[in-house]
Amino acid sequence: MSPVFDNLDLFVEGFLTSLGICLVAMVGSLVLGVAIAACRVSPVPPLRALGAFWVTTFRNTPLSLILFFCAFGLPELGVNRSFWFFGVLGLILYTSAFVAEAVRAGINSVPAGQAEASRSLGLTFGQGLRTVVLPQALRTVVPPLGNVIIAMFKNSAVVGAFGVGGDLWSTGQTLTSARGLETLPIFTGVAIGYLLITLPAGALLQVLERRVAIVR
C-alpha cells in the first residue's frame, strides 16, 4: 500500500474534490427533483406530462451518456463552460429524476384518508398539507432519498472518469497511467476513499430510518 501513502496528499485532495462535486450536485438535484415531483403530483395536466417526461428521460439514460451530451452537445449551441460545470450539470439532471421519484412515492404513500380527514376537520389545503400530509410524507421519503444521495456520491466517480479532473477517481487514473504506478494498490486506495463516505452514510441512514419509521 506504500504507493497510496506516498501520495496521500493527492488522495485527500481528490476526496475533497469528490465531496465538493457532491455537495453542489446534492443541493441542485434536491431542488430540481422536488420541483419535478411537485409537477408530477399537481392537478395541472401539462405539468404532470412535463414531470413524467423528465423522469422517463433521465432515469432511463446512462449518466455517462448525459455527461457526453452536456460536454459535446451544449458547446454546439454556444454554451462553453468548464468540464466541471458540465459534469456537475449532468449529475444534477440525472439525480433529479431519482429524487423526484422518491419524493413522489413518499407523497403517494400517505393514505388518502389522511388528507380527507384533514379536510373534513376544516383545515384548508395549505394547512392540511403543512400539518398532516407533508410531515408523514417526509418521513417516508428519508430512506429512499438517502439512498439516492449515497448513489450520487458513487456516481461522482463517473463524473470524474469523464474528465473533471482532480477528484478521487481522476487521482487514481493519473497515478496509474501517467506515473505508471501499479493499479491494484492505487485503486484499492480509491475504493477505500469511496467507502469512507458510503459506509458511514449507509449506517447513519439505517439509524435515521429506524428513528423516523412510522408504523402503519
Partner: peptide, 23 residues
C-alpha cells in the same frame, strides 16, 4: 455485501478490466 454495495460501479469495472489483468 456492504463493501461491494458501497463502491462505485465504475471502480468495480476498473478492477475487473484493468486490475485483474495487472495482477
Amino acid at each position: 455485501v456492504e463493501v461491494l454495495r458501497g463502491l462505485p460501479v465504475v471502480v468495480l469495472v476498473y478492477f475487473g478490466v484493468r486490475v485483474l489483468d495487472d495482477v
